[in-house]
């Protein structure tokens, strides 16, 4: 049986748009397959790996555990919302590259979004506290150390008035 369809309107990376979706379509699949936001990655589809993390009204959520219909009326931010211009990266993206905080890149968009959320909401976390806050996203490559470094470095960049406005 084909599922029910619904029309939804939501804001993605600052742009409002409407689409018709099957009600069982996950938010992750909606973002990837309908909007070509390929920074949303499917690593486990059962809410453990965190690679599909997006910001829903500014808070990190696992988009494989939501249905697109549930995002109707909400704001979503994906890594593409920070910058898609490789010559003009967001300071957090810069920090990840400078600190070699990515290898295969599969967890990277999720880690970057989580970093943005932490810097915005949680102030001066210690390295140990940063680790706890990153523990919901698995990285299989880096051993995390450089990701923690990138969070610290990005925080410094963002607190620098020269770049904070971006």
């Amino acid at each position: 049986m084909a599922g029910d369809m619904r029309s939804i309107t939501l804001t993605i990376n600052g742009r409002q748009l409407s689409r018709d979706v099957e009600t069982r379509l996950t938010l992750a699949d909606f973002l990837r397959d309908h909007l070509d936001l390929t920074g949303v990655h499917l690593g486990c589809e059962h809410g453990v790996c965190g690679c599909c993390t997006v910001l829903l009204d500014g808070r990190s959520v696992r988009s494989c555990l939501m249905f697109a219909v549930q995002a109707d009326g909400h704001e979503i931010e994906t890594v593409e919302g920070l910058s898609t211009d490789i010559d003009k990266l967001h300071p957090i993206q810069e920090a990840f590259s400078e600190e070699h905080a990515l290898q295969c890149g599969f967890c990277t968009p999720a880690m970057i979004l989580r970093t943005k959320e932490l810097i915005t909401n949680d102030g001066e976390l210690s390295r140990e506290e940063i680790r706890e806050q990153l523990s919901g996203i698995l990285c299989r490559c880096t051993g995390y150390q450089n990701i923690v470094n990138a969070v610290v470095s990005a925080r410094e960049k963002m607190h620098d008035p020269q770049v904070a406005g971006r």
Binding site: T38, H41, I86, L89, G105
Partner: peptide
């Protein structure tokens, strides 16, 4: 220790993985 030349595409969500 130079920055990797691979990085930019991954940072902006354009890794070009098989699922893409």
């Amino acid at each position: 220790s130079i920055r990797r030349v691979e990085d930019p595409r991954y940072l902006v969500g354009r890794g070009g993985y098989i699922g893409d």
